[in-house]
Design a protein around this nucleic acid. Structure first.
Length: 282
DNA sequence: AAGAGTGTCAACCGCGGCAGA
DNA sequence: GTCTGCCGCGGTTGACACTCT
């Protein structure tokens, strides 16, 4: 049994919307409000499918929409949110007032994907170099490499804020390195090994703070080092990738979903992201 | 000047989630 | 608990604009 199409395609207009179609739709929604998209075209007298009307309204006609000129701040935010959420364009758009998921998706595909990819490859070069050189402990490049190896779970905890998370970290590494301690609001004593397995640590702390510190302070030496050594890293810490590669990122997402004590649905994440008080309380 | 190649973005499509019957 | 229909999402397409040769 096949799925019933959303509407009959016969006799319907397709492709670009004309000015008068826009006017009809805008006037209709102004009078009757949004919703009931399936019936809207008939009631409004439009030869369009309901889905098409909805899309046109949400992505183009809505009065609160900002179009074009994505600012540097917005771009930065898109990159950071994309690190956390992946291609969840509607969630990302929800954090950018006046921007639509379609616009952000297009902007990502045409501008940011390449940009982020090149920064990612610079990061990999940087880390490879540091590993090859066996820099002494404490060296910024080595430290950044260790961050890349170990601290991607920090971002993971942000994605499931306020939820206790099992992290596959080596506790010894974390505590022994004093440069990492300020990144955690809670004292390391609150990091409790789970089930006697030292590689699983239960953590529950302020994740936003962690991410900011990670991106803005701790990561900077790596970028500077890249520049000093002739590797261009664009100097954009916020835009630098936290992942060594896409596989690592995918692996991270998969494991989050499977963890028993972690919010198992991304809708939970959406709720969290929509909670302004929580977001700003720290 | 013109044709080819590339980029951009509005619109379409199919699927999955969810609410209500 | 199951079914049905609507809505919203993310991936993809294709028309148009722009740049290069």
């Amino acid at each position: 049994m096949g799925r019933r199409p959303c509407c009959s395609k016969e006799g319907l207009n397709r492709g670009a919307w004309s000015a008068w179609e826009d006017k009809i739709l805008r006037d209709y929604i102004k009078t009757h409000g949004e919703g009931k998209w399936r019936d809207l075209p008939k009631r409004a007298g439009l030869k369009r499918c309901g889905k098409s009307c909805r899309l046109r309204w949400l992505n183009y006609l809505r009065p609160d929409i900002k179009r074009g000129n994505i600012s540097h701040d917005e771009e930065d935010l898109i990159i950071k949110l994309h690190k956390l959420l992946g291609n969840r364009w509607s969630l990302i758009a929800g954090r950018l007032p006046g921007r639509t998921d379609n616009e952000i998706k297009n902007y990502w595909n045409t501008n940011l994907r390449k940009k982020v990819k090149s920064q990612q490859s610079n990061l990999e070069k940087c880390i490879d170099k540091s590993k090859a050189n066996k820099a002494p402990k404490g060296d910024s490049v080595e430290a950044a490499a260790r961050v890349d190896d170990q601290f991607h779970p920090v971002i993971r905890t942000k994605a499931v804020r306020c939820t206790k998370v099992y992290l596959p970290l080596q506790q010894d590494d974390m505590v022994a390195d004093h440069s990492l301690e300020p990144m955690c609001n809670d004292s390391p004593s609150k990091w409790v090994p789970q089930d006697g397995d030292p590689s699983n640590i239960l953590i529950d702390f302020d994740m936003k703070e962690l991410v900011l510190r990670f991106e803005d302070d701790f990561f900077q030496p790596c970028v500077q080092d890249c520049q000093n050594s002739g590797n261009s890293a664009d100097g954009n810490v916020g835009g630098g990738s936290i992942w060594s590669n896409e596989a690592m990122q995918e692996d991270w997402r998969g494991r989050v979903i499977q963890e028993p004590n972690v919010a198992s649905k991304l809708r939970t994440l959406a709720t969290f992201l929509d909670s302004e008080e929580e977001w700003q309380e720290k």
